[in-house]
Computed example of a mutant assay.
Amino acid sequence: MPSQRPLLALIDGHALAFRAFHALAKAGLRASNGEPTYAVFGFISILLNAIHEHHPKYVAVSFDVGRTFRDDMYAEYKAGRAETPDEFHQQLDRIQQLIRAFNIPIYTKDGFEADDVIGTLSRQAAREQVDTMILTGDTDTLQLVDDYVSVLLANPYVQKGKNTMLYDEAQVLDRYNGLKPTQLADLRGLKGDTSDNIPGVKGIGEAGAIALLKQFETVENLYAHLDDVPNRYKKALDGQQEQALFSKRLATIVCDVPVTLDLRHAE
């Protein structure tokens, strides 16, 4: 039965804009003065379609704002990513201008990623008996899914038909072969994450990590019962507890960022 609680749509600004930028680059949309607009078009199209389809009472956006505590923890965090093209920054500025023109509040916090801000705001909304739908272009926020939080995962590469998929707890369980949302940081702690350069445990892939977590639930419990681990995984795991726990911390979205949700402003 669908929830009767009001809905807050939280937009992961950078993730959605970056997906739109790469997905629509070949379209090459530009204004009459030559300014690139393809990422702006993709971002706003997905945002407006989501609002039209899901009818949130409240809408807010969060963006990344530079260096975060994860960079302080691990100098190689997100290392190896290509330099962001100038055309992306140019269009991101335009996207933010449009969001302000729509009177949609923007939440950011120095030292934290947009995911952390979104996680914090979603927990505050739940305490107000408000559901949250996170609109994003990547899967990191699936770890936040619970009775109050869903994730609308956008894929701008789909040019015809539906280009979003809504994830509740059942959809997360299905995608990750039985893992719960609360186990997804553990999953990245074991298998790592090449996109964020999270190391994980060498020799443990996604299938092995899922199998281990279905048996042991968490990285901590796995290492507490290492003697019970199937032999084919023991050699890779041995001596890697600190690395696995460190990787899990890097992958865990924090939900206590010093920001305060103002629902009236987001209405």
Rank of each mutant, 00 (worst) to 15 (best):
131 D>C: 00
14 H>C: 00
50 A>H: 06
248 K>Q: 14
55 H>Y: 02
12 D>S: 02
82 A>V: 10
260 T>D: 15
233 Y>L: 13
251 A>D: 07
19 R>L: 01
266 A>Q: 08
77 Y>V: 11
227 D>Y: 01
115 D>A: 04
147 D>F: 02
198 I>G: 02
95 I>D: 12
115 D>G: 02
4 Q>S: 13
189 G>T: 11
77 Y>C: 08
13 G>D: 02
21 F>K: 02
36 P>D: 03
55 H>T: 09
218 T>E: 00
65 V>I: 07
197 N>W: 08
35 E>G: 10
267 E>S: 11
30 R>N: 00
36 P>K: 01
176 Y>S: 04
194 T>K: 13
209 A>E: 14
2 P>M: 09
14 H>D: 12
221 N>I: 07
239 G>Y: 13
80 G>D: 13
99 I>G: 05
7 L>G: 02
119 G>I: 00
184 L>V: 09
57 K>A: 04
261 L>Y: 13
21 F>W: 05
143 Q>V: 03
82 A>C: 03
233 Y>T: 06
4 Q>F: 05
265 H>L: 15
242 E>R: 15
136 T>R: 04
99 I>A: 02
205 G>R: 09
66 G>D: 00
139 T>G: 09
258 P>S: 14
261 L>H: 08
94 R>V: 14
63 F>C: 03
257 V>L: 06
186 D>S: 12
110 D>A: 10
265 H>V: 13
19 R>T: 00
220 E>F: 09
210 I>A: 01
31 A>K: 05
266 A>P: 00
198 I>D: 03
